[in-house]
Write a protein that binds this DNA or RNA. Structure first.
Length: 219
DNA sequence: AAAGTATTCAACCGCTCTCCT
DNA sequence: AAGGAGAGCGGTTGAATACTT
């Protein structure tokens, strides 16, 4: 049977919602089979459509500044572990966050390239590496590898990978965002009080409440 | 108004992980 | 313990849309 690809029609969406309502959102191969979707969507495709688009708990609309800061913070800590990051942002999907990161952070990186910040000869890259030293080796390796974000060698600027650059941007933005008194939600309330201390200090684990599984993953 | 370029995001691919037998 | 199947994840692609010239 030919596998159906491409955008989902409204009809297909309705059918999928109906079937998931009946059988739950677990057995995707089964769901794909019984749904009778024209041309044969595979289970994987059904799952993706449900998780990223049809799930009733999904939040619609743009990423809020609070969410953005949370994404930046979580990414600086977790690297490209989008599903982990998504778990901390109710209603947002890993795909959404991943896309957001790629588009917005790349844009910021380009802006930053155009008007380089003259400050801090001891560039914050220094403390980024400090922050990364808090992470397990595989995370550090991941976030410094060029493949993680799919950039080509063109994206490597003066010996730094785009990941390093983006992390720096993320940290700077977090500092400016936090110090401008914008922190309203509880996550950031605690962090704001930590402000003038070095970045890597308040990025260390005790200031972040981790899930048990997160904690175990790193120890 | 048209053409060219950039951005966004849904969807696919391939790999890894987890669970079950 | 081994192997297979299904689920989940991260990276990538490409079509649609927005913006610029």
């Amino acid at each position: 049977m030919e596998m159906r690809k491409g955008p989902w029609s409204e009809q297909e969406d309705l059918q999928l919602v109906r079937i998931v309502g009946l059988f739950g959102d677990r057995r995707w191969d089964f769901i794909a089979k019984v749904s009778g979707l024209r041309g044969g969507r595979i289970g994987k495709s059904c799952r993706l459509r449900w998780v990223n688009y049809l799930h009733p708990d999904l939040k619609r609309g743009r990423i809020t500044p609070q969410e953005e800061r949370l994404i930046l913070e979580l990414h600086s800590r977790l690297g490209n572990r989008w599903s982990r990051i998504a778990r901390k942002l109710p209603g947002r999907t890993d795909n959404e966050i991943k896309n957001y990161w790629r588009t917005h952070m790349r844009k910021k990186a380009q802006e930053r390239k155009r008007k380089p910040c003259p400050s801090s000869p001891s560039s914050s890259l220094t403390y980024i590496s400090g922050a990364q030293s808090e992470l397990p080796s595989e995370v550090v390796a991941e976030s410094s590898s060029t493949s993680a974000l799919g950039e080509t060698s063109d994206d490597v600027v003066e010996g730094y990978s785009m990941d390093q650059i983006w992390n720096e941007i993320a940290m700077r933005d977090m500092i400016s965002g936090l110090s401008s008194g914008e922190c309203k939600d509880e996550v950031y309330d605690g962090m704001c009080s930590a402000i003038p201390s070095p970045m890597w200090e308040y990025c260390s684990y005790p200031l972040w409440k981790m899930d048990d599984e997160d904690f175990q993953a790193y120890h």
